[in-house]
Amino acid sequence: MAARTKVSIRINGTAYSHEVEPRLLLVHYLRDVVGLTGTHIGCETSICGACTIMLNGAAVKSCTVLTVQADGGEVLTIEGLAQGEELHPIQEGFWECHGLQCGYCTPGMILSTYQLLLRDSKPSEDEIRHAIDGNLCRCTGYQHIVDAVQYAAKKLRQKAVGNRILDPI
């Protein structure tokens, strides 16, 4: 077995430090080591996007990132989005617009939306569909998800202070 490596990663604002095997996938680290099981695994080939998280301000598929690659980084997972009981506007959008059914793709879908709205506060429907192209949903047919993203974008624009609408964690 390969030598274990020490990693320190901030996840949802909390610092974590562990010795891990270099081959440990980030998604397994989050789920099995840290215990944050909101990030899901839906394929093995970086296609489905269920494992999407934010790493250093960019949405990534955490099944295709080694934990050691994230050493020293900042991670945002679905569990870190709400402020206490207050839902994030994106979560609110998914709820209001019935943007989920079985819920399995939802955390990844929400994080991809987070990425989109970080870069574009007023995306068109086409841009939304382009932005969630890396996230498969088998239940909804995507329409309510698009509605949810539009809802969230609008809500965030209303809440925006200056140009910063999201904290780019």
């Binding site: 789920r31 839902l87 939802t106 955390p107």
Partner: peptide, 14 residues
């Protein structure tokens, strides 16, 4: 939805 959109639901692997 609240448990699902917060990532707090429990599927088998959880």
């Amino acid at each position: 939805d609240p448990r699902l959109i917060r990532g707090l639901a429990h599927y088998v692997d959880d």
